[in-house]
Protein backbone atom coordinates (compact mmCIF):
# COMPACT_ATOMS: atom_id res chain seq x y z
CA UNK A 1 0.00 0.00 0.00
CA UNK A 2 1.43 3.32 -1.03
CA UNK A 3 1.37 6.37 1.19
CA UNK A 4 -1.29 7.91 -1.01
CA UNK A 5 -3.51 4.90 -0.64
CA UNK A 6 -3.06 4.92 3.12
CA UNK A 7 -4.07 8.54 3.22
CA UNK A 8 -7.08 7.91 1.02
CA UNK A 9 -8.14 5.03 3.16
CA UNK A 10 -7.87 6.99 6.36
CA UNK A 11 -9.21 10.25 5.00
CA UNK A 12 -12.46 9.65 6.85
CA UNK A 13 -10.73 9.31 10.19
CA UNK A 14 -8.63 12.37 9.50
CA UNK A 15 -11.76 14.31 8.66
CA UNK A 16 -13.43 13.19 11.89
CA UNK A 17 -10.43 14.46 13.87
CA UNK A 18 -10.59 17.72 11.91
CA UNK A 19 -14.31 18.07 12.76
CA UNK A 20 -13.50 17.55 16.44
CA UNK A 21 -10.82 20.22 16.50
CA UNK A 22 -12.93 22.58 14.40
CA UNK A 23 -15.65 22.27 17.03
CA UNK A 24 -13.09 23.00 19.74
CA UNK A 25 -11.77 25.98 17.81
CA UNK A 26 -15.30 27.24 17.28
CA UNK A 27 -16.19 27.15 20.94
CA UNK A 28 -12.93 28.79 22.01
CA UNK A 29 -13.58 31.64 19.59
CA UNK A 30 -17.17 32.03 20.69
CA UNK A 31 -16.29 31.78 24.36
CA UNK A 32 -12.91 33.43 24.92
CA UNK A 33 -11.09 31.78 27.77
CA UNK A 34 -12.85 28.47 27.23
CA UNK A 35 -9.70 26.77 26.04
CA UNK A 36 -7.67 27.36 29.20
CA UNK A 37 -5.40 24.69 30.61
CA UNK A 38 -7.76 23.55 33.34
CA UNK A 39 -10.66 23.19 30.96
CA UNK A 40 -8.64 21.40 28.31
CA UNK A 41 -7.45 18.99 30.96
CA UNK A 42 -11.06 18.34 31.94
CA UNK A 43 -11.93 17.66 28.31
CA UNK A 44 -8.98 15.32 27.87
CA UNK A 45 -10.07 13.37 30.95
CA UNK A 46 -13.65 13.16 29.69
CA UNK A 47 -12.38 11.90 26.34
CA UNK A 48 -10.37 9.25 28.14
CA UNK A 49 -13.35 8.17 30.24
CA UNK A 50 -15.51 7.71 27.17
CA UNK A 51 -12.46 6.23 25.49
CA UNK A 52 -12.11 3.34 27.94
CA UNK A 53 -15.66 2.20 27.30
CA UNK A 54 -15.28 2.82 23.57
CA UNK A 55 -12.18 0.59 23.42
CA UNK A 56 -14.27 -2.17 24.89
CA UNK A 57 -17.24 -1.48 22.67
CA UNK A 58 -15.07 -1.64 19.53
CA UNK A 59 -14.43 -5.36 19.97
CA UNK A 60 -18.01 -6.72 19.97
CA UNK A 61 -19.11 -4.22 17.32
CA UNK A 62 -16.34 -5.43 14.99
CA UNK A 63 -17.80 -8.93 15.23
CA UNK A 64 -21.21 -7.51 14.31
CA UNK A 65 -22.49 -7.43 17.88
CA UNK A 66 -22.94 -4.74 20.47
CA UNK A 67 -22.69 -4.41 24.25
CA UNK A 68 -25.44 -2.41 25.91
CA UNK A 69 -24.51 -3.60 29.40
CA UNK A 70 -21.68 -1.07 29.70
CA UNK A 71 -23.49 1.28 32.16
CA UNK A 72 -24.02 -1.11 35.01
CA UNK A 73 -20.76 -3.00 34.55
CA UNK A 74 -19.18 0.45 34.81
CA UNK A 75 -21.12 1.17 37.99
CA UNK A 76 -20.25 -2.18 39.54
CA UNK A 77 -16.57 -1.52 38.74
CA UNK A 78 -16.67 1.79 40.58
CA UNK A 79 -18.60 0.36 43.49
CA UNK A 80 -16.33 -2.68 43.91
CA UNK A 81 -13.31 -0.38 44.02
CA UNK A 82 -14.86 1.73 46.77
CA UNK A 83 -16.05 -1.27 48.72
CA UNK A 84 -12.84 -3.25 48.55
CA UNK A 85 -10.45 -0.44 49.37
CA UNK A 86 -12.54 1.46 51.89
CA UNK A 87 -10.34 4.45 51.11
CA UNK A 88 -7.01 2.70 51.81
CA UNK A 89 -4.59 3.08 48.89
CA UNK A 90 -2.64 -0.08 49.79
CA UNK A 91 -5.68 -2.22 49.15
CA UNK A 92 -5.72 -1.13 45.52
CA UNK A 93 -3.22 -3.94 44.92
CA UNK A 94 -5.96 -6.51 45.06
CA UNK A 95 -8.91 -4.24 44.35
CA UNK A 96 -7.79 -3.58 40.77
CA UNK A 97 -7.44 -7.24 39.76
CA UNK A 98 -10.77 -8.07 41.41
CA UNK A 99 -12.54 -5.28 39.52
CA UNK A 100 -11.01 -6.38 36.22
CA UNK A 101 -11.93 -9.98 36.95
CA UNK A 102 -15.50 -8.97 37.78
CA UNK A 103 -15.70 -7.16 34.43
CA UNK A 104 -14.37 -10.26 32.65
CA UNK A 105 -16.93 -12.47 34.36
CA UNK A 106 -19.82 -10.16 33.52
CA UNK A 107 -18.59 -9.96 29.94
CA UNK A 108 -18.27 -13.74 29.84
CA UNK A 109 -21.92 -14.05 30.83
CA UNK A 110 -22.86 -11.81 27.89
CA UNK A 111 -20.54 -13.64 25.56
CA UNK A 112 -21.82 -17.04 26.59
CA UNK A 113 -25.43 -16.07 26.01
CA UNK A 114 -24.63 -14.56 22.64
CA UNK A 115 -22.07 -16.98 21.22
CA UNK A 116 -23.08 -20.29 22.73
CA UNK A 117 -26.83 -19.94 23.38
CA UNK A 118 -27.44 -17.82 20.29
CA UNK A 119 -29.28 -14.86 21.82
CA UNK A 120 -29.25 -11.62 19.81
CA UNK A 121 -26.52 -9.34 21.24
CA UNK A 122 -28.80 -6.33 21.73
CA UNK A 123 -31.33 -8.31 23.74
CA UNK A 124 -28.76 -10.29 25.71
CA UNK A 125 -26.77 -7.25 26.81
CA UNK A 126 -29.88 -5.17 27.40
CA UNK A 127 -31.19 -7.89 29.71
CA UNK A 128 -27.86 -8.41 31.44
CA UNK A 129 -27.66 -4.64 31.91
CA UNK A 130 -30.80 -4.66 34.03
CA UNK A 131 -29.63 -7.82 35.78
CA UNK A 132 -26.39 -6.08 36.81
CA UNK A 133 -28.45 -3.09 37.85
CA UNK A 134 -30.62 -5.34 40.01
CA UNK A 135 -27.55 -6.99 41.53
CA UNK A 136 -25.89 -3.71 42.45
CA UNK A 137 -29.03 -1.99 43.68
CA UNK A 138 -30.14 -5.11 45.53
CA UNK A 139 -26.85 -5.68 47.32
CA UNK A 140 -26.39 -2.04 48.26
CA UNK A 141 -30.05 -1.38 49.06
CA UNK A 142 -29.99 1.48 46.62
CA UNK A 143 -27.23 3.44 48.28
CA UNK A 144 -23.75 2.50 47.16
CA UNK A 145 -21.33 3.77 49.78
CA UNK A 146 -17.62 3.13 50.29
CA UNK A 147 -14.64 5.40 50.04
CA UNK A 148 -12.27 6.01 47.19
CA UNK A 149 -8.54 6.25 48.03
CA UNK A 150 -7.12 9.76 47.68
CA UNK A 151 -4.52 8.52 45.25
CA UNK A 152 -7.31 7.62 42.86
CA UNK A 153 -8.60 11.15 43.02
CA UNK A 154 -5.19 12.54 42.06
CA UNK A 155 -4.94 10.05 39.23
CA UNK A 156 -8.43 10.79 37.96
CA UNK A 157 -8.27 14.57 38.12
CA UNK A 158 -4.54 15.37 37.83
CA UNK A 159 -2.25 15.59 34.87
CA UNK A 160 0.57 17.50 33.22
CA UNK A 161 -0.38 20.81 31.66
CA UNK A 162 -3.50 20.45 29.59
CA UNK A 163 -3.35 16.67 29.47
CA UNK A 164 -4.82 14.47 32.20
CA UNK A 165 -3.09 11.32 33.46
CA UNK A 166 -6.17 9.43 32.38
CA UNK A 167 -5.71 10.66 28.83
CA UNK A 168 -2.17 9.34 28.79
CA UNK A 169 -3.33 5.97 30.12
CA UNK A 170 -5.98 5.92 27.44
CA UNK A 171 -3.47 6.69 24.69
CA UNK A 172 -1.23 3.84 25.83
CA UNK A 173 -4.18 1.46 25.93
CA UNK A 174 -5.30 2.72 22.54
CA UNK A 175 -1.95 1.87 20.98
CA UNK A 176 -2.24 -1.56 22.52
CA UNK A 177 -5.77 -1.95 21.16
CA UNK A 178 -4.70 -0.87 17.71
CA UNK A 179 -1.85 -3.36 17.71
CA UNK A 180 -4.13 -6.16 18.88
CA UNK A 181 -6.79 -5.39 16.29
CA UNK A 182 -4.61 -4.82 13.26
CA UNK A 183 -1.37 -6.68 13.87
CA UNK A 184 -2.29 -9.91 15.62
CA UNK A 185 -4.07 -13.00 14.36
CA UNK A 186 -6.64 -12.54 17.11
CA UNK A 187 -7.51 -9.14 15.66
CA UNK A 188 -7.79 -10.52 12.14
CA UNK A 189 -10.11 -13.24 13.43
CA UNK A 190 -12.39 -10.57 14.91
CA UNK A 191 -12.60 -8.80 11.57
CA UNK A 192 -13.13 -12.09 9.78
CA UNK A 193 -16.06 -12.99 12.01
CA UNK A 194 -17.59 -9.58 11.40
CA UNK A 195 -17.28 -10.06 7.67
CA UNK A 196 -18.61 -13.56 7.41
CA UNK A 197 -19.35 -15.88 10.25
CA UNK A 198 -19.73 -18.86 7.94
CA UNK A 199 -16.42 -18.26 6.17
CA UNK A 200 -14.67 -17.82 9.51
CA UNK A 201 -16.13 -21.06 10.77
CA UNK A 202 -14.96 -22.97 7.70
CA UNK A 203 -11.54 -21.36 7.97
CA UNK A 204 -11.13 -23.07 11.29
CA UNK A 205 -11.68 -20.08 13.56
CA UNK A 206 -13.25 -20.90 16.89
CA UNK A 207 -16.00 -18.40 16.22
CA UNK A 208 -17.89 -18.90 19.46
CA UNK A 209 -14.82 -18.52 21.64
CA UNK A 210 -13.55 -15.42 19.84
CA UNK A 211 -16.99 -13.85 19.98
CA UNK A 212 -17.27 -14.54 23.69
CA UNK A 213 -13.82 -13.10 24.29
CA UNK A 214 -14.80 -9.78 22.68
CA UNK A 215 -17.57 -9.34 25.23
CA UNK A 216 -15.14 -10.24 28.00
CA UNK A 217 -12.80 -7.51 26.83
CA UNK A 218 -15.69 -5.08 26.68
CA UNK A 219 -16.80 -6.00 30.19
CA UNK A 220 -13.28 -5.62 31.52
CA UNK A 221 -12.85 -2.21 29.91
CA UNK A 222 -16.21 -1.00 31.23
CA UNK A 223 -15.29 -2.12 34.75
CA UNK A 224 -11.90 -0.45 34.43
CA UNK A 225 -13.63 2.70 33.22
CA UNK A 226 -15.84 2.64 36.30
CA UNK A 227 -12.87 2.11 38.57
CA UNK A 228 -11.00 5.07 37.14
CA UNK A 229 -14.15 7.18 37.04
CA UNK A 230 -14.76 6.63 40.75
CA UNK A 231 -11.84 8.94 41.48
CA UNK A 232 -13.59 11.75 39.63
CA UNK A 233 -16.71 11.89 41.75
CA UNK A 234 -16.89 12.83 45.41
CA UNK A 235 -19.70 10.39 46.03
CA UNK A 236 -20.56 7.26 44.11
CA UNK A 237 -24.05 7.29 42.67
CA UNK A 238 -26.21 4.83 40.76
CA UNK A 239 -26.42 5.53 37.09
CA UNK A 240 -22.84 6.80 36.84
CA UNK A 241 -22.37 4.91 33.62
CA UNK A 242 -25.73 5.64 31.99
CA UNK A 243 -24.31 8.03 29.42
CA UNK A 244 -21.73 5.57 28.25
CA UNK A 245 -24.26 3.09 26.88
CA UNK A 246 -25.21 4.99 23.76
CA UNK A 247 -22.17 7.26 23.70
CA UNK A 248 -19.74 4.36 23.40
CA UNK A 249 -21.74 2.91 20.51
CA UNK A 250 -21.98 6.35 18.90
CA UNK A 251 -18.23 6.92 19.26
CA UNK A 252 -17.53 3.67 17.45
CA UNK A 253 -20.09 4.42 14.74
CA UNK A 254 -18.88 8.00 14.20
CA UNK A 255 -15.39 6.57 13.86
CA UNK A 256 -16.50 4.70 10.79
CA UNK A 257 -16.77 1.17 12.14
CA UNK A 258 -19.82 -0.45 10.62
CA UNK A 259 -22.33 -1.75 13.15
CA UNK A 260 -22.63 -4.78 10.88
CA UNK A 261 -19.06 -5.58 11.85
CA UNK A 262 -15.95 -6.41 9.91
CA UNK A 263 -14.84 -3.01 8.73
CA UNK A 264 -13.34 0.15 10.12
CA UNK A 265 -10.36 1.02 12.24
CA UNK A 266 -9.95 1.59 15.96
CA UNK A 267 -8.28 4.95 15.28
CA UNK A 268 -11.67 6.10 14.02
CA UNK A 269 -13.18 5.24 17.39
CA UNK A 270 -10.63 7.55 19.00
CA UNK A 271 -11.74 10.34 16.68
CA UNK A 272 -15.34 9.53 17.57
CA UNK A 273 -14.58 9.99 21.27
CA UNK A 274 -13.06 13.39 20.53
CA UNK A 275 -16.11 14.51 18.55
CA UNK A 276 -18.65 13.42 21.15
CA UNK A 277 -16.91 14.89 24.19
CA UNK A 278 -15.99 18.16 22.50
CA UNK A 279 -19.50 18.53 21.10
CA UNK A 280 -20.92 17.87 24.56
CA UNK A 281 -18.66 20.53 26.05
CA UNK A 282 -19.55 22.96 23.28
CA UNK A 283 -23.28 22.54 23.78
CA UNK A 284 -22.92 23.10 27.52
CA UNK A 285 -20.54 26.06 27.10
CA UNK A 286 -22.87 27.81 24.68
CA UNK A 287 -25.55 27.54 27.37
CA UNK A 288 -28.18 26.13 25.07
CA UNK A 289 -31.28 24.77 26.73
CA UNK A 290 -31.31 21.02 27.23
CA UNK A 291 -33.82 20.62 24.44
CA UNK A 292 -31.69 22.43 21.88
CA UNK A 293 -28.66 20.45 23.04
CA UNK A 294 -30.39 17.16 22.31
CA UNK A 295 -31.62 18.30 18.93
CA UNK A 296 -28.15 19.44 17.84
CA UNK A 297 -26.54 16.34 19.30
CA UNK A 298 -28.89 14.14 17.29
CA UNK A 299 -28.28 16.02 14.07
CA UNK A 300 -24.49 15.97 14.47
CA UNK A 301 -24.53 12.27 15.35
CA UNK A 302 -26.57 11.59 12.25
CA UNK A 303 -24.36 13.63 9.93
CA UNK A 304 -21.12 12.31 11.41
CA UNK A 305 -22.13 8.70 11.03
CA UNK A 306 -23.48 9.35 7.57
CA UNK A 307 -20.22 10.95 6.55
CA UNK A 308 -18.00 8.18 7.88
CA UNK A 309 -20.15 5.30 6.66
CA UNK A 310 -20.23 6.79 3.17
CA UNK A 311 -16.50 6.77 2.98
CA UNK A 312 -16.17 3.27 4.33
CA UNK A 313 -18.53 2.16 1.61
CA UNK A 314 -16.42 3.72 -1.08
CA UNK A 315 -13.15 2.12 0.00
CA UNK A 316 -14.63 -1.35 -0.01
Amino acid sequence: MTAKETLKRNASILLTFIIAFALLAFVSVMKPGYANTANLKMISISIAMLGFTAIGQTFPILTGGMDLSVPWVFCIGAYLCAMLTGGEPAKMIYAVPVVLLAGLVMGALNGFGIAYVGIAPVIMTMASNIIFQGLLVGFTNGTPGGKIPDGMKNLATGGVGAVGWMFLIWVVMSVLTWVILSKTSYGRKIYAIGNSMTCSLYSGINVKLVKMSTYMICGMMAALGGLLYSGRVTQLYLGMGSNYQMESVSAVAIGGISLMGGSGSYIGTMAGCFVIVILDGLLTAMSFSQGVQKVIYGIVLFLAVLLSSRRTGRTE
Binding site: S258, S289, G291
Partner: peptide, 25 residues
Protein backbone atom coordinates in the same frame (compact mmCIF):
# COMPACT_ATOMS: atom_id res chain seq x y z
CA UNK B 1 -28.20 5.88 2.97
CA UNK B 2 -27.80 2.31 4.22
CA UNK B 3 -27.21 3.66 7.71
CA UNK B 4 -27.64 1.13 10.48
CA UNK B 5 -31.20 1.44 11.84
CA UNK B 6 -29.79 1.39 15.36
CA UNK B 7 -27.67 4.48 14.92
CA UNK B 8 -30.04 6.33 12.57
CA UNK B 9 -33.00 6.01 14.94
CA UNK B 10 -30.75 6.80 17.90
CA UNK B 11 -30.08 10.16 16.26
CA UNK B 12 -33.77 10.75 15.51
CA UNK B 13 -34.55 9.79 19.09
CA UNK B 14 -32.18 12.43 20.42
CA UNK B 15 -33.69 15.09 18.15
CA UNK B 16 -37.24 14.10 19.14
CA UNK B 17 -36.47 14.16 22.84
CA UNK B 18 -34.87 17.56 22.44
CA UNK B 19 -37.97 18.86 20.65
CA UNK B 20 -40.14 17.45 23.43
CA UNK B 21 -38.08 19.39 25.96
CA UNK B 22 -38.64 22.54 23.92
CA UNK B 23 -42.40 21.99 23.99
CA UNK B 24 -42.55 21.22 27.70
CA UNK B 25 -39.60 21.78 30.03
Amino acid sequence: TKLQPFIATLATQSVCMGLALLILK
